[in-house]
Write a protein that binds this DNA or RNA. Sequence first.
RNA 1: GGGCGAUUAGCUCAGACGGUUAGAGCGUCUGCUUUACACGCAGAAGGUCAGAGGUUCGAGUCCUCUAUCGCCCACCA
Length: 895
Amino acid sequence: MTQIKSLSEIPRAYEPQTVERRIYEFWSDGGYFTPEIDHTREPFTVIMPPPNVTGELHMGHALTIALEDLMVRWHRMKGEPALYLPGSDHAGIATQVVVERMLAGEGVSRHDLGRDGFNDSVWQWVDRYGSRIYEQTKRIGASCDWTRAAFTLDEGPSSAVRTTFVNLYKKGLIYRGERITNWCPRCRTALSDLEVKYQEENGNLYYIRYLLEDGSGALIVATTRPETLLGDTGVAVNSDDERYTDCIGKSVVLPALGRTLPIVGDEAVELGFGTGALKVTPGHDATDFEIGQRNGLQSVSVMNLDGTLNANAGPYEGQSMAEARKNIVERLEADGLLERVEPYQHSVGHCDRCDDVVEPIITNQWYVKMEPLAKPARDAVANGDTRIIPDRFAKVYFNWMDNIRDWCISRQLWWGHRIPVWYCDDCDEVIVEIDDPTKCGACGSGALTQDDDVLDTWFSSGLWTHSTLGWPNDTEDLDYFYPTSVMETGYDILFFWVARMMVMGIENMGAPPFHTVYLHGLVLDPEGVKMSKTRGNVLDPLQLIDLYGADALRFALTIGNSPGNDQRLNEQKLEASRNFANKLWNAARFVMSNLEDGGTALECWYNPKLPAHRQDRWIMSRLNRVADDVGRYMEEYQFGEAQRAIHDFFWHEFADWYIEMAKIRLRANDASDAESPLPYLAYVLERVLRMLHPFMPFVTEEIWQRLGERVPADPDAPAALIIAEYPEADAALYDDEAESDIALVMEIVRSIRNMRAEFRIQQHQRIEAALDLPGDGVAAGAEADAIKMLARVEPLTIGADGEGTASADSVSLVLSKGVVTIPLRGLVDLDKERERLQGEAADIDRNRERLAARLSDSRFLSRAPAEVIERERERLDSMEARKGRVEDILGRLSG
RNA sequence: GGGCGAUUAGCUCAGACGGUUAGAGCGUCUGCUUUACACGCAGAAGGUCAGAGGUUCGAGUCCUCUAUCGCCCACCA
């Protein structure tokens, strides 16, 4: 009765809530997350993409962590010093907006507090809430080394930022210039090209008449933004456009304001588009800016930084762009200068952060000159130093690198890394230094003013792979862990982040920052729509962890996961994953309850002798083949496939068959029996726990610990599953014979069960059966018992001619080898039985004929590989033998 | 304007290198309180692999074109 008692000690269902926190602390307290630097071994390093310090963990983070953590745990179990380095990002605009909103609730603006006061408030916020994202990360089970956690504004990463800025400046790769740049009037800052998202919008195309100054007519220009004519400084036509060749050099009068504008020829004007004449507004359009530069047109800015019009707009000063548009269109109509208006769809740039319309304006900003930096970053992927998975993204990467544009890195914000540039108040000297200067190097003046701007958040992110390891200092971490192994992140930040890390890593370290880039897709809602707060369709990972457990969430996120592909998440996946964890729990419960009585047989559980029993040889063979598959899938980054292989083996071979067959042996044998399945039950379960650990860390560790308490100690066992060795295949244990024998047992059982269902024979009712296999086969001893128990057969008689004993009141089940005959007095209709067998014969025939045709095709025989031909031949042989048996039985039924 | 992805069972998705009768989970249907598990067990039904051509002894898999959906890039006045 010990069995009952011990079972009651273990909950019937796996309860993640009672396990996860305890297990995480166990790992954490055990120091397993901190790798030991061992110069005899290659480390495995993953730097976590740092979430926003003010952020909440969302599904994207959960997927990132699930994938990264499984890689890290796998490598850790392979004995590699594995570093998973966590951190958080100050997230410039995002954080500033959050804190400003909070202050606004108290009726305070950032300007009330001033720069220092405001930054103090943000720091208070960070101190108070900044650890929340870490706590959330822990709940997923991330095996991060928290002793190395880094924040982008920490001293180390900040020093990396300054050092990089100064180095690039001194190389001439950072410059300041008055250029046209994306400007968000709401955020009141410049943006990089990547931070502008274009959306198709329905607007109008306005055709406006610009009268020639000499009174000889008019040029008609088309524009989607009539209000920008206030900043026009020219009209351009294509020099090759015969319609306008006479006009070049002449002037037109700007409507509404009356300025005179020159007409210039420029190749940027498309011949076929609009009217062929383009109004040039260098101050508010990037293309026009370039046309202006080429043709010596001046730039007039008509917009204030808040998006309203300035004094250059004359009577329209103070109006918003939208108001000005309305008023100008009215004015044009009144003046008779509006030729016509057509509806027109075009794309409009919006701020990635606040979604306001972005205005291109000319401001003084800092830029990184990208072209020379991009070249080596491109080459590193082209020559294979860094591999991008899936490789189709390499093309996208090349395309971006090949068409790289300079990167605007200054932001008119307060929260972030302040640009390390000072201006001398007395002599205009520009001082760019890593350490704050105290006096001007040129004139000695102490009156220095630091540049007001901060750097784009992604500037510090770009340094993350080395700044977190100590750079610019020459640290042991940097020496050992750089370059990192895998950068795992979403394809949506390939340019924002990955590309810039490549650039900066190579620039600062002389080597690309990672060997492999693994890009995952988006997690979509159950309808296949991208999750977003505004749409209200977000699934909250923390809520799902509460409901299903962290293991289930992780497992659900990696089901069928293939790199670069988007995936939907739904309840069904979570339920299936939770059910799987519970299945594992209960299989373990069963094994453990039997271990109580294990006795001497168990001493070899952790290092079982070569199995003698056919069932043990089978399960060990299968285990090792699966370990081989899993290892290969993991190497190839096919994590979804690896997971599926473990899932299927555990559930549909180990639980469904091996455990069920072992139950019979356990009941029949006494505990000291040399052929007890107990060591193998324990062993295979333990190996499954190991294989599964990277995918379901909590439940596997919990079971592993409990298992460890119930078996004789393995002298070589580690203290925790997290550092146990990952199973590798031992080909010596592959056993073809046992595999085909047990496959036959399963076939017999399945065909009898199938027949029982067909004839509606009650589940617990025992039936008689005659099993007729060629040779002595598998039907002896334990396998006969297995068949009897699993198919509920009693008595089972065994013959050896393989032909069966068909009769008018029996059913004949023709197997791939042999026949099962089941007498069913009164239940069998002879005609129906004949019909059934004829159907089976026809089925076999279809395949037989196809194979026969293939094997008589001389082209197939001459061109297909020998092993394929051989295999097809064997199949045909067995098909024919089977067909023969069916016909034989049919003959006997008729005769 | 360029580029990419998806299209396989009712639903969600796997199917490296071309080679058994194309798989899983969920759902559906039929039975089961079989002392590990009803978050379970046994059984079943369900697919012209989007369409059309091609390469090949052989195509869900490779090539070309088409369709539908989705995404990315681009100085679309």
